[in-house]
Design a binder for these strands. Structure first.
Lengths: 245, 245
DNA sequence: AGACAACAACTAACACTGTTAGGGAGCGAC
DNA sequence: GTCGCTCCCTAACAGTGTTAGTTGTTGTCT
């Protein structure tokens, strides 16, 4: 640093108690320890030993803070990226599972990430990793862009939906399994003459096979990618259309 | 005279002024007119000519009200369901586009629906429609359940992500198109030596081709469904495994 | 007719929330 | 010194979801 001239003389002039970096780190601590609902300007400020209005010097909004936290979360997830293997399909699958697992492990991360398009180093690292892999597999630039976006949408959306009934059950003190089957009971109790297919599918719709459900949706998407035309580059990826079902 | 309290005269004041149905209808009115951020217990109560705490007689939570609103939204969308055509793929595609269009037209509906699994008549109608179609096409029960869930996750997640930058731009008074390309500029400005693929894909990642992006993701998923085994039932839908790519 | 329970609204209040206005220390530069 | 900048402070506002306790109305049973 020690920027010259135009930079607003930021050379260790008065060590600020709150830097943008410390702010993000404190926010992540609060998020992980107390959850998103307890993450207020005041609680994050308290984590820094400071009062709430001070944060507005570093950040315009709570929204902006959340945007930064979203990117910070991605930055945390980056070291957990699965190592590079040979097959693009295996890699993409591993990546999706790893992402889902991360979202489920890191408290409320999915609620912060949902609908946000972070534009910091965290997002850059994840995207670069993924785009490089897809390029290596021979996907075109536009396709690769769509694929990364689609995959992140898919996983994020899935985990978001997967976590809501769970947290609701936890709040009510009901075991998750019973809460889920309770929804099934509700559906099964619908009038079978007007909703025959729905009632017949009640169990399949609400079954606790959450991993299988994720697997199904993901594999269908990957199947769709497999029939996409690719440039025959180095490392074609090995698999053709459908290998497992 | 001696007006009975502040009762507005000739109405059946003590008749149930608030029914659960009226509550939901009022909530939908407020949601459409003022948006989700302005939908508070007080504002919905005001819409009914009533004070906020009264709502707690009919509803445990704001959460429960939102659950009801979610189902109400689906109920509104039901008449807009596309008519039945022959090919399951065409039907599923039409349905996804119609759902996306509905979510984009009906204010903040995606924020209400996201992550919620409504359990009322609105959800029942949508599900029945979809499950019947999939059954007619020969998909198994479990597959059909996964497909409906996956499709709704996909569309909802996509629209959620699609609407956030738009609303942010609207708030800031910036045209949407410029706001989106601004993100592209940010990404393009990343160090190209550490993030070569990312920088090279900046335009493709943030291009305003939002419809094409949706189409790509959806069609990939449908491609994945096309290679799924199906029972040869009545009305196979005309297509076998893979017809168009 | 009178009593009683039920329903369904009310007022008042609590503990929070995000956010703004304005004040004032500590510092570098003139 | 006196600017002026940075960065945190106190005070306050308008609004939130939600609970407690109260009051009035209605239908039913005696």
């Amino acid at each position: 640093m020690t920027g010259k001239g135009r930079a607003p003389a930021d050379g260790a002039r008065r060590r600020p108690a709150v830097t943008l970096d410390a702010l993000v780190r404190a926010g992540l601590v609060v998020l992980e320890r107390d959850g998103l609902d307890a993450l207020s300007m005041r609680s994050v400020a308290a984590e820094l030993g400071v009062r709430a209005p001070s944060l507005y010097w570093h950040v315009r909004d709570k929204e902006e803070l959340l945007d930064l936290l979203a990117d910070g979360l991605l930055g945390i997830g980056v070291p957990a990226l699965p190592p590079v293997r040979g097959d693009w399909r295996v890699e993409l699958r591993d990546l999706a599972w790893a992402f889902r697992s991360f979202l489920n492990r890191r408290r409320d991360s999915v609620r912060v990430l949902m609908g946000r398009f972070p534009s910091g180093p965290g997002m850059a690292a994840v995207m670069e990793h993924q785009l490089a892999m897809l390029d290596r597999a021979g996907f075109g630039r536009q396709d690769a862009a769509y694929i990364t976006y689609g995959l992140s949408t898919l996983v994020t959306g899935f985990v978001y939906g997967e976590q809501r009934p769970i947290s609701a059950a936890v709040v009510a003190g009901v075991p998750v399994r019973e809460a889920v089957t309770a929804i099934g009971d509700t559906i099964a109790a619908f009038p079978a003459d007007t909703y025959p297919h729905l009632v017949a599918t009640a169990r399949e719709l609400t079954g606790p096979h959450i991993d299988e459900r994720f697997e199904f949706i993901l594999e269908r998407f990957l199947d769709g990618l497999a029939v996409l035309p690719r440039n025959p580059k180095r490392d074609g990826g090995g698999t053709t259309a459908a290998e497992d079902v």
